[in-house]
């Protein structure tokens, strides 16, 4: 195979493009700018860490189906870890969102980073909702019967039925986690490509 033919292969072109956009030292950097040494920059990683615990505990809960943890002390413990890591996930994500909103984190060509964060937030709300209605207890019965009226009034009840445990469970353990994890991965890659957004005074200094 000639060099020209190799150059034209999609694998070669994709590899070169990926390596150009995201060289290893950018993907896993050794240092960060000084302005990153602030507590407000911690909440993105806190959200990501919580997500890892959410996924890990969710995998343990999935091992024996949607009911087993009701009667098992071990199941109760894992379920509590799942719930509290979700609480922490949303807590950290909201503080991260406020921080990035007030520093206008979409500056400097970072609009796609901002938008992937927005869509991840929406997917996570869906994942949280389907989790609450998949608890298989009185709480989930109450939430789903209340939610069905809201969803029916929006005209989508025929496609998304909170009273259908099977559908809610599939959305909760397959579709929405895939969406949340893929979008989070994309969000983190975009942060690596574009870099962490600087505070307003730092970007003004850089522009001068």
């Amino acid at each position: 195979m000639s060099t020209t033919e190799i150059d034209r292969q999609w694998t070669t072109r994709l590899r070169r493009r990926a390596a150009g956009k995201l060289p290893p030292e950018k993907l896993l950097p050794d240092t960060q700018p000084t302005y990153v040494a602030s507590w407000i920059y911690v909440f993105g990683v806190a959200t990501l860490s919580s997500l890892i615990v959410v996924i890990a505990t969710g995998c343990v809960l999935a091992l024996r189906g949607p009911y087993w943890w009701h009667g098992s002390p071990y199941g109760h413990f894992v379920n509590s870890l799942h719930l509290w890591s979700v609480e922490l996930f949303f807590f950290a994500m909201v503080v991260h969102l406020w921080g990035k909103f007030f520093m206008a984190a979409w500056r400097g060509g970072r609009s796609l980073t901002w938008m992937t964060g927005v869509v991840t937030f929406l997917a996570s709300i869906g994942a949280g909702f389907t989790g609450y209605v998949a608890q298989t207890n009185f709480d989930s019965q109450w939430i789903s019967t209340q939610a069905k009226d809201g969803i029916n009034s929006g005209g989508v009840g025929a496609y998304f039925n909170p009273l259908d445990l099977g559908q809610m469970l599939m959305w909760h353990i397959v579709l929405l986690p895939i969406a949340a994890v893929v979008l989070t991965g994309l969000h983190v890659l975009l942060v690596r490509i574009k870099g962490v957004v600087p505070p307003f005074d730092e970007s003004a200094e850089a522009a001068q």
Partner: peptide
């Protein structure tokens, strides 16, 4: 608590 954490993150020294 979220508002308090947000303000603390802005003003506490790292």
């Amino acid at each position: 608590l979220m508002v308090a954490t947000f303000l603390a993150a802005l003003f506490l020294p790292f």
